[in-house]
Design a protein around this nucleic acid. Structure first.
Lengths: 151, 151
DNA sequence: AGTGAAAAGGCTTTAAC
DNA sequence: GTTAAAGCCTTTTCACT
Protein backbone atom coordinates (compact mmCIF):
# COMPACT_ATOMS: atom_id res chain seq x y z
CA UNK A 1 0.00 0.00 0.00
CA UNK A 2 1.29 3.42 -0.92
CA UNK A 3 0.78 6.58 1.08
CA UNK A 4 0.86 10.06 -0.32
CA UNK A 5 1.59 13.27 1.49
CA UNK A 6 -2.03 13.65 2.57
CA UNK A 7 -2.06 10.25 4.22
CA UNK A 8 1.11 11.13 6.08
CA UNK A 9 -0.35 14.48 7.09
CA UNK A 10 -3.39 12.70 8.49
CA UNK A 11 -1.20 10.32 10.48
CA UNK A 12 0.79 13.24 11.80
CA UNK A 13 -2.35 14.88 13.15
CA UNK A 14 -3.56 11.64 14.70
CA UNK A 15 -0.18 10.99 16.29
CA UNK A 16 -0.54 14.30 18.08
CA UNK A 17 -4.20 13.76 18.98
CA UNK A 18 -5.83 10.47 18.15
CA UNK A 19 -9.18 11.85 19.28
CA UNK A 20 -9.19 14.68 16.79
CA UNK A 21 -12.46 14.81 14.89
CA UNK A 22 -12.71 14.49 11.13
CA UNK A 23 -13.31 18.22 10.94
CA UNK A 24 -10.11 18.98 12.82
CA UNK A 25 -8.11 16.51 10.77
CA UNK A 26 -9.38 17.72 7.43
CA UNK A 27 -8.88 21.36 8.37
CA UNK A 28 -5.27 20.69 9.27
CA UNK A 29 -4.34 18.60 6.26
CA UNK A 30 -6.07 20.93 3.81
CA UNK A 31 -8.53 18.43 2.44
CA UNK A 32 -12.26 18.16 2.84
CA UNK A 33 -14.09 15.81 5.15
CA UNK A 34 -14.85 12.85 2.96
CA UNK A 35 -11.48 12.07 1.42
CA UNK A 36 -10.02 12.21 4.93
CA UNK A 37 -12.58 9.76 6.10
CA UNK A 38 -11.90 7.43 3.16
CA UNK A 39 -8.16 7.60 3.72
CA UNK A 40 -8.41 6.87 7.42
CA UNK A 41 -10.66 3.89 6.82
CA UNK A 42 -8.33 2.64 4.12
CA UNK A 43 -5.31 2.91 6.43
CA UNK A 44 -7.17 1.20 9.24
CA UNK A 45 -8.15 -1.65 6.94
CA UNK A 46 -4.63 -1.98 5.53
CA UNK A 47 -3.08 -2.08 8.98
CA UNK A 48 -1.12 1.12 8.48
CA UNK A 49 -3.12 2.30 11.45
CA UNK A 50 -2.82 -0.48 13.99
CA UNK A 51 -5.01 1.17 16.60
CA UNK A 52 -5.54 4.12 18.88
CA UNK A 53 -4.27 4.32 22.45
CA UNK A 54 -4.13 6.56 25.42
CA UNK A 55 -0.74 7.53 26.76
CA UNK A 56 -0.84 6.74 30.46
CA UNK A 57 1.53 8.12 33.07
CA UNK A 58 3.07 4.91 34.39
CA UNK A 59 3.92 6.32 37.79
CA UNK A 60 0.39 7.60 38.32
CA UNK A 61 -1.06 4.13 37.84
CA UNK A 62 1.34 2.44 40.22
CA UNK A 63 4.33 1.57 38.06
CA UNK A 64 7.11 3.84 39.31
CA UNK A 65 9.96 1.65 38.08
CA UNK A 66 11.03 0.45 34.68
CA UNK A 67 13.88 -1.72 33.51
CA UNK A 68 15.70 -2.57 30.34
CA UNK A 69 16.48 -6.27 30.35
CA UNK A 70 18.78 -8.06 27.95
CA UNK A 71 18.62 -11.81 27.53
CA UNK A 72 20.76 -14.47 25.89
CA UNK A 73 19.27 -17.85 25.16
CA UNK A 74 20.80 -21.32 25.04
CA UNK A 75 19.31 -22.26 21.71
CA UNK A 76 19.29 -20.05 18.66
CA UNK A 77 17.10 -21.93 16.26
CA UNK A 78 14.25 -20.01 14.71
CA UNK A 79 11.73 -22.04 16.65
CA UNK A 80 13.41 -21.57 20.02
CA UNK A 81 13.77 -17.83 19.59
CA UNK A 82 10.22 -17.41 18.44
CA UNK A 83 8.67 -19.62 21.10
CA UNK A 84 10.59 -17.72 23.74
CA UNK A 85 9.23 -14.45 22.41
CA UNK A 86 5.69 -15.73 22.72
CA UNK A 87 6.31 -16.53 26.37
CA UNK A 88 7.74 -13.09 26.97
CA UNK A 89 4.78 -11.45 25.30
CA UNK A 90 2.48 -13.27 27.69
CA UNK A 91 3.95 -11.42 30.68
CA UNK A 92 1.84 -8.29 31.21
CA UNK A 93 4.69 -6.28 32.72
CA UNK A 94 6.77 -6.76 29.59
CA UNK A 95 5.85 -3.63 27.65
CA UNK A 96 8.23 -4.14 24.76
CA UNK A 97 10.16 -7.16 23.55
CA UNK A 98 12.58 -7.13 20.65
CA UNK A 99 14.50 -9.95 19.09
CA UNK A 100 17.84 -8.38 18.22
CA UNK A 101 21.20 -9.05 16.64
CA UNK A 102 24.40 -8.73 18.62
CA UNK A 103 25.58 -9.89 22.03
CA UNK A 104 22.08 -10.53 23.30
CA UNK A 105 19.04 -12.15 21.79
CA UNK A 106 16.27 -10.15 23.41
CA UNK A 107 15.87 -6.64 24.71
CA UNK A 108 12.88 -5.93 26.94
CA UNK A 109 11.33 -2.96 28.62
CA UNK A 110 9.53 -3.90 31.79
CA UNK A 111 7.36 -1.88 34.16
CA UNK A 112 7.14 -2.86 37.82
CA UNK A 113 5.47 -1.63 40.99
CA UNK A 114 8.79 -1.52 42.82
CA UNK A 115 11.93 -3.56 43.40
CA UNK A 116 10.05 -6.23 45.30
CA UNK A 117 7.69 -6.61 42.42
CA UNK A 118 10.65 -6.88 40.09
CA UNK A 119 12.24 -9.64 42.11
CA UNK A 120 8.96 -11.53 42.08
CA UNK A 121 8.59 -11.02 38.32
CA UNK A 122 12.14 -12.22 37.67
CA UNK A 123 11.87 -15.33 39.81
CA UNK A 124 8.29 -16.33 39.20
CA UNK A 125 7.82 -15.40 35.58
CA UNK A 126 10.97 -14.62 33.63
CA UNK A 127 13.31 -17.29 35.01
CA UNK A 128 10.54 -19.85 34.83
CA UNK A 129 10.83 -19.67 31.08
CA UNK A 130 13.40 -22.33 30.18
CA UNK A 131 16.36 -21.59 27.98
CA UNK A 132 17.85 -18.41 29.42
CA UNK A 133 21.63 -18.51 29.44
CA UNK A 134 22.32 -15.04 30.65
CA UNK A 135 20.48 -11.86 31.58
CA UNK A 136 21.36 -8.31 32.40
CA UNK A 137 19.07 -5.65 33.86
CA UNK A 138 19.42 -1.89 33.78
CA UNK A 139 17.22 0.32 35.86
CA UNK A 140 15.60 3.19 33.99
CA UNK A 141 16.66 6.28 35.90
CA UNK A 142 14.87 8.71 33.66
CA UNK A 143 12.79 8.60 30.51
CA UNK A 144 14.22 11.27 28.25
CA UNK A 145 11.97 10.67 25.29
CA UNK A 146 9.00 8.62 24.15
CA UNK A 147 8.16 9.89 20.74
CA UNK A 148 6.35 9.11 17.55
CA UNK A 149 7.67 8.21 14.13
CA UNK A 150 8.87 11.18 12.11
CA UNK A 151 6.40 11.59 9.26
CA UNK B 1 -3.83 11.90 42.79
CA UNK B 2 -5.53 8.63 43.59
CA UNK B 3 -7.30 6.39 41.13
CA UNK B 4 -10.04 3.95 42.00
CA UNK B 5 -11.07 0.86 40.11
CA UNK B 6 -13.38 2.86 37.85
CA UNK B 7 -10.59 5.16 36.76
CA UNK B 8 -8.43 2.17 35.96
CA UNK B 9 -11.30 0.55 34.07
CA UNK B 10 -11.69 3.69 31.99
CA UNK B 11 -7.98 3.72 31.18
CA UNK B 12 -8.14 0.08 30.23
CA UNK B 13 -10.87 0.79 27.71
CA UNK B 14 -9.01 3.77 26.28
CA UNK B 15 -5.80 1.79 26.03
CA UNK B 16 -7.64 -0.62 23.79
CA UNK B 17 -9.43 2.08 21.81
CA UNK B 18 -8.61 5.69 22.47
CA UNK B 19 -11.38 6.76 20.12
CA UNK B 20 -14.11 5.00 22.07
CA UNK B 21 -17.02 7.33 22.72
CA UNK B 22 -18.23 8.21 26.20
CA UNK B 23 -21.17 5.90 25.64
CA UNK B 24 -18.91 2.97 24.87
CA UNK B 25 -16.63 3.71 27.78
CA UNK B 26 -19.41 4.12 30.31
CA UNK B 27 -21.17 0.98 29.10
CA UNK B 28 -17.99 -1.03 29.56
CA UNK B 29 -17.00 0.27 32.97
CA UNK B 30 -20.53 0.02 34.35
CA UNK B 31 -20.99 3.68 35.16
CA UNK B 32 -23.17 6.29 33.56
CA UNK B 33 -22.05 8.94 31.13
CA UNK B 34 -21.36 11.89 33.35
CA UNK B 35 -19.08 10.40 36.02
CA UNK B 36 -17.00 8.90 33.21
CA UNK B 37 -16.70 12.26 31.60
CA UNK B 38 -15.69 13.89 34.87
CA UNK B 39 -13.11 11.23 35.57
CA UNK B 40 -11.56 11.44 32.13
CA UNK B 41 -11.30 15.23 32.35
CA UNK B 42 -9.81 14.93 35.81
CA UNK B 43 -7.18 12.44 34.62
CA UNK B 44 -6.36 14.57 31.60
CA UNK B 45 -5.90 17.62 33.80
CA UNK B 46 -3.78 15.73 36.32
CA UNK B 47 -1.53 14.33 33.62
CA UNK B 48 -2.49 10.73 34.31
CA UNK B 49 -3.63 10.79 30.73
CA UNK B 50 -0.74 12.33 28.82
CA UNK B 51 -2.42 12.22 25.43
CA UNK B 52 -3.96 10.07 22.75
CA UNK B 53 -2.05 8.61 19.80
CA UNK B 54 -2.44 6.47 16.79
CA UNK B 55 -0.34 3.34 16.53
CA UNK B 56 1.35 3.48 13.16
CA UNK B 57 2.90 0.55 11.32
CA UNK B 58 6.50 1.74 11.01
CA UNK B 59 7.25 -0.33 7.93
CA UNK B 60 4.22 0.99 6.08
CA UNK B 61 5.38 4.57 6.51
CA UNK B 62 8.91 3.92 5.31
CA UNK B 63 10.77 2.87 8.43
CA UNK B 64 11.54 -0.81 7.89
CA UNK B 65 14.51 -0.92 10.26
CA UNK B 66 14.88 -0.30 13.97
CA UNK B 67 17.85 -0.42 16.28
CA UNK B 68 18.56 -0.61 19.95
CA UNK B 69 21.55 1.62 20.70
CA UNK B 70 23.49 1.72 23.94
CA UNK B 71 25.73 4.64 24.78
CA UNK B 72 28.38 5.40 27.37
CA UNK B 73 29.38 8.98 27.99
CA UNK B 74 32.66 10.53 29.07
CA UNK B 75 31.20 12.66 31.82
CA UNK B 76 28.69 11.43 34.36
CA UNK B 77 27.67 14.59 36.13
CA UNK B 78 23.97 15.29 36.35
CA UNK B 79 24.29 18.19 33.96
CA UNK B 80 26.22 16.29 31.33
CA UNK B 81 23.84 13.35 31.37
CA UNK B 82 20.81 15.56 31.21
CA UNK B 83 22.11 17.86 28.50
CA UNK B 84 23.01 14.84 26.42
CA UNK B 85 19.50 13.50 26.78
CA UNK B 86 18.08 16.75 25.46
CA UNK B 87 20.23 16.44 22.37
CA UNK B 88 19.10 12.89 21.84
CA UNK B 89 15.47 13.86 22.20
CA UNK B 90 15.94 16.41 19.43
CA UNK B 91 16.68 13.67 16.90
CA UNK B 92 13.37 12.69 15.28
CA UNK B 93 14.44 9.13 14.55
CA UNK B 94 15.11 8.52 18.25
CA UNK B 95 11.78 7.09 19.33
CA UNK B 96 12.75 6.28 22.90
CA UNK B 97 15.65 7.38 25.06
CA UNK B 98 16.27 6.11 28.57
CA UNK B 99 18.92 7.13 31.03
CA UNK B 100 19.80 3.87 32.75
CA UNK B 101 21.98 2.36 35.44
CA UNK B 102 24.59 -0.27 34.61
CA UNK B 103 27.26 -0.65 31.99
CA UNK B 104 25.78 1.96 29.71
CA UNK B 105 24.30 5.39 30.31
CA UNK B 106 21.66 5.52 27.61
CA UNK B 107 19.51 3.05 25.81
CA UNK B 108 17.77 4.20 22.64
CA UNK B 109 15.33 2.81 20.17
CA UNK B 110 15.79 4.28 16.73
CA UNK B 111 13.80 3.92 13.53
CA UNK B 112 15.51 4.31 10.17
CA UNK B 113 14.62 4.09 6.49
CA UNK B 114 17.39 1.56 5.88
CA UNK B 115 21.04 0.88 6.66
CA UNK B 116 22.19 3.84 4.60
CA UNK B 117 19.90 6.11 6.55
CA UNK B 118 21.27 4.62 9.75
CA UNK B 119 24.85 5.32 8.76
CA UNK B 120 23.90 8.90 7.96
CA UNK B 121 22.08 9.28 11.26
CA UNK B 122 25.02 7.89 13.20
CA UNK B 123 27.62 10.08 11.51
CA UNK B 124 25.68 13.28 11.02
CA UNK B 125 23.54 13.37 14.13
CA UNK B 126 24.50 10.98 16.90
CA UNK B 127 28.29 11.20 16.74
CA UNK B 128 28.08 14.95 16.31
CA UNK B 129 26.91 15.12 19.89
CA UNK B 130 30.08 15.49 21.93
CA UNK B 131 30.84 13.28 24.89
CA UNK B 132 30.22 9.76 23.61
CA UNK B 133 32.82 7.34 24.88
CA UNK B 134 31.38 4.15 23.52
CA UNK B 135 28.36 2.91 21.63
CA UNK B 136 26.84 -0.40 20.67
CA UNK B 137 24.04 -1.02 18.22
CA UNK B 138 21.76 -4.01 17.89
CA UNK B 139 19.50 -4.46 14.92
CA UNK B 140 15.89 -5.24 15.74
CA UNK B 141 15.18 -8.48 13.92
CA UNK B 142 11.62 -8.77 15.09
CA UNK B 143 9.25 -6.89 17.34
CA UNK B 144 7.69 -9.51 19.57
CA UNK B 145 5.59 -7.17 21.69
CA UNK B 146 4.58 -3.57 22.04
CA UNK B 147 2.02 -3.47 24.76
CA UNK B 148 0.25 -1.29 27.26
CA UNK B 149 0.62 -1.06 31.01
CA UNK B 150 -1.22 -3.78 32.89
CA UNK B 151 -4.10 -2.08 34.68
C1' DA C 1 -20.46 10.79 43.95
C1' DG C 2 -23.73 8.61 40.65
C1' DT C 3 -28.16 8.59 37.74
C1' DG C 4 -30.93 9.95 34.08
C1' DA C 5 -32.57 13.00 30.94
C1' DA C 6 -32.41 16.85 27.90
C1' DA C 7 -30.47 20.31 24.84
C1' DA C 8 -27.39 21.75 21.62
C1' DG C 9 -24.22 20.94 18.66
C1' DG C 10 -21.05 18.46 16.07
C1' DC C 11 -20.02 14.27 13.91
C1' DT C 12 -19.91 10.63 10.63
C1' DT C 13 -21.48 8.98 6.46
C1' DT C 14 -23.69 9.08 2.02
C1' DA C 15 -24.88 10.91 -2.24
C1' DA C 16 -24.60 14.29 -6.12
C1' DC C 17 -21.50 17.02 -8.77
C1' DG D 1 -11.79 15.52 -4.55
C1' DT D 2 -15.60 18.87 -3.29
C1' DT D 3 -19.67 20.33 -1.36
C1' DA D 4 -23.83 19.71 0.88
C1' DA D 5 -27.37 17.41 3.55
C1' DA D 6 -29.37 13.96 6.70
C1' DG D 7 -29.76 12.07 10.78
C1' DC D 8 -27.67 9.94 14.36
C1' DC D 9 -24.78 10.12 18.19
C1' DT D 10 -21.91 12.92 21.32
C1' DT D 11 -20.63 15.72 24.52
C1' DT D 12 -21.95 18.47 28.19
C1' DT D 13 -24.94 20.27 31.69
C1' DC D 14 -28.34 20.17 35.29
C1' DA D 15 -31.69 18.70 38.58
C1' DC D 16 -32.36 14.89 41.52
C1' DT D 17 -31.14 10.82 44.32
Amino acid sequence: MSLDKFDLAILRVLQRDARASLNEVSAEVGLSNSPCWTRIKRMEAAGVIAGYTVQVNAEAVGYPDQLIVQLTLDAHTDDALHAFGQQLAAIPEVLEAYLVSGDYDYVLRIAVRGTRDYERLLRERLYKIPGIRHSKSSFVLRTMKQGALPL
